[in-house]
């Protein structure tokens, strides 16, 4: 197996009085796209938030590039090279597209060559460069959210349900963008409900249920095994085509 960039061992986390994560063990291989699947309420989003330090870990540890980052404040985790795109996208709607990207470039002015690459990846961002981000469509906001995450080189991207509520054509554009990021050896942890999208992109997969990982392996293995899909996710691939 490829060397891990991130590993979670026995992670437990609570939100208010509710126990959400019950000992999550997860390994994200370096340079691969790992998909985290599971039904609603399984704990997928909380897992991403826990990695980012947004939800407090009550037990277990998070290791990133061989460093224990458990308990680090969120800004320190972000600056160590992990970018997070939440389910809500977290766009600053009152700021322009340009200002959203200026803010995301934490290490100084934006690199022009990288910006050109982003414009090639997501052309609408160039079109609406000086417009308030709140006026963008859902798909354009998702493009901006991902562009913000990669405006500077990152080693690991955590992306929560990027296809939610988007039209098929936009989903296809996003898939192309993730393919490009994969080709640059960026490690990605993607939470998804869209199995076709996941199957197209994912190299490895983990399935969560009730706050724990119940399956981990290669995406090809899961995609080829309808019984396993049905058992883990309550779906058959045919139903999603």
């Amino acid at each position: 197996m490829t060397e891990p960039i991130l590993s979670l061992s026995g992670i437990r986390a609570d939100i208010a009085q509710y126990h959400i994560l019950h000992g999550v063990d997860l390994v994200i291989p370096r340079g691969e796209l790992t998909v985290l699947l599971g039904r609603n309420g399984a704990g997928k989003s909380t897992t991403l938030r826990t990695i980012m330090g947004l939800t407090t870990v009550t037990d277990g540890n998070v290791r990133y590039r061989d460093t224990d980052i458990t308990g680090w404040p969120t800004p320190r985790i972000a600056r160590s090279g992990i970018a997070f795109v939440p389910e809500s996208m977290g766009i600053f709607g009152l700021l322009t597209v340009r200002e959203n990207l200026i803010l995301a470039a934490v290490n100084g002015p934006m690199d022009e060559a990288r910006l050109d690459w982003i414009f090639a990846l997501f052309p609408p961002l160039k079109t609406f460069w000086n417009r308030p981000a709140g006026n963008l469509s859902g798909g354009q906001k998702q493009m901006l959210a991902i562009a913000r995450a990669v405006i500077e080189p990152r080693e690991l991207l955590l992306v929560d349900e990027p296809t939610k509520g988007l039209a098929p054509a936009i989903i296809n554009d996003l898939a192309d963008a993730f393919e490009q990021l994969k080709s640059q050896q960026v490690s990605i942890l993607l939470v998804e409900q869209n199995f076709n999208f996941s199957r197209r992109l994912g190299q490895s997969v983990a399935v969560m249920s009730d706050g724990a990982i119940v399956h981990a392996g290669s995406m090809a293995e899961l995609a080829d095994n309808a019984d396993l899909q049905h058992e883990l996710l309550g779906l058959a691939l045919g139903a999603h085509q």
């Binding site: 404040p73 800004p75 997070f84 995301a104």
Partner: peptide, 19 residues
């Protein structure tokens, strides 16, 4: 820009790497 972003969402400002 940071102040205006902070008015909208403090959490997202932290996620960008700012204290």
């Amino acid at each position: 820009i940071l102040i205006r972003a902070g008015v909208e969402s403090r959490e997202m400002v932290e996620i960008q790497g700012y204290r």
